[in-house]
């Protein structure tokens, strides 16, 4: 069985990994800025500019990929678990409506986590991860948004604020990366569980046959 979100899961994981790497360099640069302005202008300023450009553009690319991915993840979830109540469209609404998304985004992962806990045997660990990450995700989203507003309005940027914002952004990206890994891992496990389930009734509709054309090992035996 092939998951519709599988390809984008792989793409998103790598892009989020690069974004985390770039955010780490940004965070290190802001620490240098806070410690010594001279060292920042002499050694870091050149790299910092490149990091800023790459992270800004990559951020928007990731947002687009992320929205498509969450849509496909919900398509997979609906196909795998008929009892899963949230449709792909509703998931996008939760993501995109301002203010409501402060509830909507964490709720997406809490629901997926609960679904893994209740409906699967092998993805309970991923389910626990997702449920436990919903609160930190909300916390760092609020922190990051709030600090961004303060920084955009500030005429003079304090060094400590600069470092805290970079650190909050880095942690937020890391949370999203972990979430992406756990969601895709849980989906793969759930997909395998359902495909290898002995009862033909449990094979959900809308899935293609094993994509690489090879019989599965269990079928060979």
């Amino acid at each position: 069985m092939k998951l519709k979100s599988e390809l984008l899961s792989s793409v998103l994981k790598i892009l989020l990994g690069v974004l985390v790497g770039v955010a780490f360099v940004d965070c290190a640069s802001s620490v240098v800025y806070a410690l010594s302005y001279e060292a920042f202008t002499d050694y870091v300023y050149g790299i910092y500019g490149i990091v800023e450009i790459v992270s800004t553009i990559l951020y928007y690319i990731v947002i687009i990929i992320y929205l498509i991915w969450i849509y496909l993840v919900h398509k997979d979830l609906n196909a795998l678990f008929p009892s899963f109540a949230r449709s792909p469209g509703q998931a996008l609404v939760c993501m995109l409506i301002p203010v409501y998304n402060l509830y909507g985004i964490p709720s997406i992962y809490r629901r997926i986590g609960r679904c893994y806990l209740e409906e699967t045997k092998g993805a309970k660990k991923e389910g626990r991860w997702l449920c436990s990450l919903a609160a930190p995700l909300l916390l760092f989203m609020l922190t990051s948004n709030g600090l961004n507003n303060v920084v955009n309005r500030a005429e003079v940027l304090s060094e400590s604020l600069f470092v805290i914002l970079s650190l909050a952004t880095l942690i937020l990206y890391m949370i999203f990366l972990v979430i992406c890994i756990q969601v895709s891992r849980g989906l793969r496990t759930a997909g395998l569980e359902i495909s290898f389930s002995p009862s033909p009734d449990t094979v959900a509709e809308g899935f293609e046959a094993h994509s690489n054309g090879q019989p599965a090992v269990t079928e060979q035996l």
Partner: peptide, 20 residues
């Protein structure tokens, strides 16, 4: 997926090269 990632990463890095 590596090809897609490489193509997507080309965008920010190209802009960075252009800007620098």
């Amino acid at each position: 997926h590596w090809i897609i990632v490489a193509l997507l990463l080309l965008i920010p890095f190209s802009v960075a090269v252009f800007a620098y």
